[in-house]
């Protein structure tokens, strides 16, 4: 696959390490979260047949973590963002 890196342009997915669903970025607030919230965060993942937001770590590149929106049925990539920029919004 080719991931269109926001800074570096098209890069082979072989340069990346897959880190899982982008939901991992939504870590519960330790002040308010219930045990169920933590359980869901640690163990439950959506497994959509279709667009999926997921984290790709450019381990063999600039070490940016990207949020890639990829259709799991076709591998079509419809969006690529820098995770740090999204997280700090």
């Amino acid at each position: 696959m080719i991931i269109n890196h926001p800074l570096l342009g098209p890069r082979d997915s072989a340069e990346f390490v897959y880190l899982g669903a982008a939901a991992l970025m939504d870590r519960p607030d330790p002040e308010t979260a219930s045990a169920e919230d933590w359980h869901d965060y640690a163990y439950l993942r959506d497994n959509p047949a279709g667009p999926h937001r997921e984290l790709w770590f450019h381990e063999g590149g600039d070490r940016s973590i990207l949020i890639v929106t990829r259709d799991t049925t076709t591998h079509e990539i419809t969006g690529v963002e820098l995770a740090r920029e999204v997280a700090s919004k």
Binding site: L8, A14, E15, E59, G60
Partner: peptide, 10 residues
């Protein structure tokens, strides 16, 4: 300048 893999080395 680019980072790339050569012989599995970054």
């Amino acid at each position: 300048a680019t980072r790339t893999s050569i012989h599995h080395l970054g």
